[in-house]
Computed example of a mutant assay.
Amino acid sequence: MIRHLVLFKLNDGVSRDEERVQAGARAFAALENEIPELTFWECAWNITDRPIAYDFAINSAVADKDALKRYIEHPAHQAAAAQWREFATWVIADYEF
């Protein structure tokens, strides 16, 4: 199994209350039902307000590297990520468990 973690940081001046940001969050939430490779999926807004904190997180899992590749290349994932590129940056970590 591979854990796929993503932490998003909203760009300066961007608020999570903006409709485009809320639409991006909804797009990621919908992936759970759109991408069959996902064996685990959760995403949510950070609840703490610390200077080093990121704003939004995805915690997911897939069976193997091939499934991770299919997930990343899936049109629904690509469309959701494209929305976030407009207002955020992110870091990822993928590891086997």
Rank of each mutant, 00 (worst) to 15 (best):
I58N: 00
A25E: 13
S60K: 00
F97D: 04
A57W: 06
L5K: 00
R50D: 06
Q78R: 08
A57Q: 10
T89Q: 09
D12L: 10
A63H: 14
Q22K: 15
T48L: 07
R26E: 12
V62Q: 01
A63F: 06
A81C: 07
A57F: 10
D17A: 14
L5W: 02
F28K: 13
A80K: 14
F8T: 07
A44C: 09
E96S: 00
R3S: 07
D17K: 13
I92M: 11
F97W: 08
V14R: 07
R70N: 00
A79I: 11
G13R: 13
I92S: 14
L10V: 10
L7V: 13
D94M: 03
T39A: 03
D17P: 03
A93V: 14
I92Q: 12
Y95A: 02
H4N: 01
Q78K: 09
Y71L: 02
E32N: 15
R50C: 08
N59C: 06
N11C: 07
L38K: 14
P75I: 11
V62H: 01
T48G: 07
F56Q: 05
A80I: 10
E19K: 15
D55T: 09
L38S: 11
D49W: 06
L38P: 09
N11Q: 12
D55Q: 04
R26I: 06
D94I: 04
R20N: 05
